Computed example of a mutant assay.
Amino acid sequence: MRKIIIGVLAAGLVSGMSVFAWQAIAADECCPKDDQTPPLDLIAATPIGGLHNPYNDDVAAIEEVGHKKYLSFSCNGCHGGGGGGGMCPPLTNDTFVYGADDDTLFRLIALGSDELQKLGYTRVKKEIVTGPMPQFGTIIKTSDDLWKVIAFIRVKNPSSVKHVSTPAQTPGQ
């Protein structure tokens, strides 16, 4: 497996002064549980294809907390309370418009579909609803919270689990 070293900026306070340090991590080690990195910062620091959900091994264990976060970020307003759809596509069918892999879902939710398209992503599948996905990368404060929402989606759509590591597209590569 190929390792790509990326930098993660860690901030702290020492005697009232800000201290910044770069910590090198490998892309295949990305995304530990409880990661407090803001989603947009993690995206900026991680090459396409390098984002992996740390909860994939047991999404059922995180279902309840993931569902609560899904509701708290108002995902249900568009996708329905259980992910079955509403004015936007259901998360329970096998039509993931940009791809069902972890990296693409994380970027789609954080950046929104308009920004995702600016990065070179295109729709690889069709859905009845084709409106834009808004950006949630500033609403969802931590990468861990976003991974928990994605884990909830995986529980609601078990067939999507087979796609977690298989990108439907890799723009810019």
Rank of each mutant, 00 (worst) to 15 (best):
Pro89Val: 02
Gly83Arg: 08
Gly120His: 04
Thr95Cys: 00
Gly82Ala: 03
Gln117His: 13
Lys125Ile: 10
Phe96Val: 04
Gly77Ser: 14
Leu146Tyr: 03
Gly81Leu: 10
Phe106Glu: 02
Glu127Gly: 06
Thr138Leu: 13
Gly137Asn: 12
Phe106Leu: 11
Thr104Gln: 05
Gly86Ala: 10
Lys126Asn: 13
Asp145Leu: 07
Gly120Arg: 06
Ile150Thr: 05
Gly86Lys: 03
Gly112Arg: 15
Leu116Ile: 14
Pro132Gln: 06
Phe136Ile: 03
Asp145Arg: 00
Gly84Val: 03
Asn76Cys: 11
Asn93Ser: 00
Lys118Met: 11
Leu119Met: 14
Phe152Pro: 08
Pro89Glu: 08
Leu111Ala: 15
Gly80Asn: 05
Val129Gln: 09
Glu127Trp: 07
Cys75Gln: 13
Gly131Phe: 15
Phe152Trp: 01
Pro134Gln: 11
Leu119Gln: 13
Met87His: 04
Glu115Ala: 15
Asp114Gly: 14
Thr130Gln: 12
Met133Phe: 07
Thr104Phe: 05
Thr95Asn: 00
Val124Trp: 02
Phe106Tyr: 11
Leu146Gly: 10
Asp103Glu: 12
Glu115Lys: 15
Glu115Asp: 15
Cys88Glu: 07
Thr138Asp: 14
Gly80Asp: 08
Leu108His: 07
Gly77Arg: 14
Ala110Asp: 13
Gly99Arg: 04
Met133Tyr: 03
Ile150Ala: 04
Lys118Gly: 14
Met133Glu: 06
Lys141Thr: 02
Thr104Glu: 09
Gln135Thr: 14
Leu119Ser: 10
Cys78Leu: 12
Gly80His: 09
Val149Phe: 05
Leu108Ile: 08
Gly82Lys: 09
Lys118Asn: 15
Leu116Gly: 08
Val149Glu: 05
Gly131Asp: 10
Tyr121Leu: 07
Gly77Cys: 14
Gly81Met: 07
Ile150Met: 08
Gln117Glu: 15
Phe152Asp: 02
Ile150Cys: 02
Met87Tyr: 00
Gly83Leu: 06
Pro90His: 00
Asp145Lys: 04
Arg123Gly: 08
Gly82Val: 01
Leu146Pro: 06
Leu111Gln: 14
Cys88Trp: 04
Phe106Met: 04
Asp102Thr: 09
Thr142Leu: 09
Leu105Pro: 08
Thr138Pro: 09
Arg123Thr: 03
Ser143Tyr: 00
Glu115Thr: 15
Asp114Met: 14
Phe152Arg: 05
Thr142His: 06
Leu91His: 06
Trp147Thr: 03
Thr95Lys: 03
Ser113Trp: 08
Leu91Met: 02
Gly112Ala: 15
Leu146Lys: 01
His79Val: 03
Lys118Trp: 11
Leu111Ser: 15
Gly137Lys: 13
Gly82Trp: 03
Val97Arg: 01
Glu115Trp: 15
Leu91Ile: 01
Asp101Asn: 04
Val124Asp: 09
Glu115Tyr: 15
Asn76Arg: 09
Thr95Ala: 01
Lys125Asn: 08
Ile109Cys: 12
Gly84Leu: 05
Ser113Glu: 12
Ile109Phe: 14
Gly112Asn: 13
Thr95Ser: 01
Gly120Val: 05
